[in-house]
Amino acid sequence: MSEPLLQVRSIFRNFGALRANDDVSLDVQVGEIVGLIGPNGAGKSTFFNIIAGALAPTRGQILFEGRDVTALVPANRCRLGIARTFQVVRSFDSMSVIDNIVVGSLLRNHDARTARHMACEVLEFVELEARADTPAGDLTSPEKRRLELARALATRPKLLLLDEVMAGLTPTEALRGIALVKRIRETGVAIIMVEHVMEIVMPLVDRIVVLDLGKIIASGSAAEITTDPLVVAAYLGDSIRA
């Protein structure tokens, strides 16, 4: 097998006395879709933000295409091909929908006109073209999630980090979201998607990684994960508390 696209090696992250990530390692292959799940407080978001560069690990190393990116800020990781969405949607509300995407597509096109052309194509890809000139602040929240995806895609990533993109969507919207992720997958972009709800990731991913209390407790196909006693215990425990 060729070199993995992303190699995360023994990440530790402490918040005071709390160890949010405890020796977490993960390899992602080119074009692979990995689902990262786990109960509340498992350390998913911490791990996600460490890969995106928004948080620094206490210890550990991240290699992207064989290159050490541990010390790079998010902007520089994005240049290398790592793009992300945010758990709480962060659109540029004073700008129009299309301009939001142009911000992303300008990374690969210095000329604003070419960037706009590319942004239009991405906009169609996420089926938001009817809203092109609407201020982003006026979008509904499922639309904002798609806009965020479009913005990230416009930077032409090799690895896309999706942080609970399906959260808060109605079943119909979620289906639409799943279809969109499938289309992104067809383009060959590798994806790490964090989701709280297991049912959403199952049909989409090649592999599921389960975090609990800061450690990876299981990793494998959807079928393997659902029968894993450790996973069942972690999730049942969570649902009883909830």
């Binding site: 998010p74 902007a75 994005c78 793009a83 540029f92 913005r151 990230a152 930077t155």
Partner: peptide, 11 residues
């Protein structure tokens, strides 16, 4: 509008 989001897009 949002510096962190801008940074995540390579700005």
């Amino acid at each position: 509008d949002d510096a962190e989001a801008a940074g995540s897009l390579g700005v």
